[in-house]
């Protein structure tokens, strides 16, 4: 078995093992941390499709994370106030059903990614970074100045949304839901990377001109990748909002975009399980170092610096070797 496969299995088992151990020790807070790690990993898996596979340095993935969050917040707040979202031309009511909210989050962020991608992919390099950042900031300031849904204060949802047949208020059950979604998306992302589309996308990252001469359009490949990437990060946003039962404009801030990028870089750009390792380490550091000092980001910065300078394949690359970036 390849070293990376083995490492992936360990990484995959790490989160549920932590959650189960915490459940046995009756430490619900640790279960919540594991849930947070799973959800942030999901956001990272989304970004990794654009960044790792497509080579698209998006500094605006908070836009999708926030849209997913607000999809949840808006639908759930209407459900809890019994005020319909829209009455004419047809009635749209709020909902507390997770699957419906997820679907709305995915569709909304995919459409946003289509619009943002269609414009920003006409540029490249530093301009692409700036255009994606600008879109994220536009949504950030829009939500701040939008009083209907809490403005700067955000929106609180009193009770966690439901999943048919499950008690999502139980921390371990909600962890199970989030982890199942992560597992499913990881499986899909793995398949995607090995598909003809994924291979062509990798090839376009390396040499766009050669890809054109075999009849593939790099722009379209990247746009599709950007849409898939945004949709996954949007789904993560909806779950994250459900975990906290709270959404605020912070989800749209450029710091959020940066954090999602940190998960990917810490774990290993382009490695399927990189974001899982990165998000888990991030949460661990936040918890451990955050307990020692309010300024724990200084240490995180140091670690990130060391990874970028000395371990460019991230955690996964350092442990599993850098022979190939894919299976």
């Amino acid at each position: 078995m390849r070293r990376e496969t083995l490492l992936n299995i360990v990484l995959f088992a790490l989160l549920p093992a932590t959650a189960l151990a915490a459940w046995m020790l009756d430490e619900p807070f640790i279960i919540t941390l594991a849930t947070k790690a799973a959800i942030l990993a999901l956001a990272g898996v989304g970004l990794n499709i654009a960044l790792g596979l497509g080579g698209l340095i998006s500094f605006g993935h908070a836009a999708f994370f926030g849209l997913g969050g607000y999809a949840m917040g808006i639908l759930a707040s209407h459900a809890q106030s019994y005020a319909p979202l829209m009455e004419s031309p047809f009635l749209i009511e709020g909902t507390k059903s997770m699957p419906v909210i997820w679907l709305v989050a995915i569709v909304t962020s995919a459409l946003a990614a289509l619009a943002i991608g269609a414009l920003s992919l006409r540029t490249s390099g530093v301009y692409f970074i700036m255009v994606t950042l600008a879109f994220g900031q536009m949504l950030f300031y829009f939500t701040i100045s939008w009083p209907a849904y809490g403005g700067e204060d955000g929106l609180s949802i009193y009770v966690r949304n439901g999943f048919p047949g499950l008690n999502t208020l139980d921390p371990l059950t909600f962890f199970g839901v989030a982890f199942a979604v992560l597992a499913l998306v990881l499986w899909g992302a793995g398949r995607l990377a090995k598909s003809a589309f994924g291979l062509a996308l990798s090839a376009a990252r390396q040499n766009p001109e050669r890809v054109e001469t075999v009849g593939l359009a790099p722009y379209r490949l990247r746009l599709v990748a950007f849409v898939i990437s945004g949709a996954i990060t949007g789904l993560a946003g909806a779950l994250f909002a459900d975990l906290n039962r709270f959404v605020s404009p912070t989800m749209f801030s450029w710091q959020t975009s940066g954090e999602i990028m940190v998960f990917v870089i810490l774990g290993g750009v382009g490695r399927l399980f990189g974001p899982v390792a990165g998000a888990a380490l991030f949460i661990l550091l936040e918890h451990v170092l955050g307990g020692l000092s309010e300024f724990w980001h200084i240490y995180l910065g140091l670690i990130l610096l060391l990874v970028v300078l000395f371990a460019r394949g991230g955690i996964v690359g350092t442990i599993a070797g850098r022979e190939v970036a894919h299976d």
Binding site: L199, A200, Q206, N207, T213, G215, L216, V324
Partner: peptide
Amino acid sequence: ARAGLGLVPEGRRCFGPLTVHENLHAAA
């Protein structure tokens, strides 16, 4: 290229990190 022009470029330029099968599969 889709209209039927197949180019074998000067200097080969295969997609280095992809395997032989993946190089061919991506173009198929």
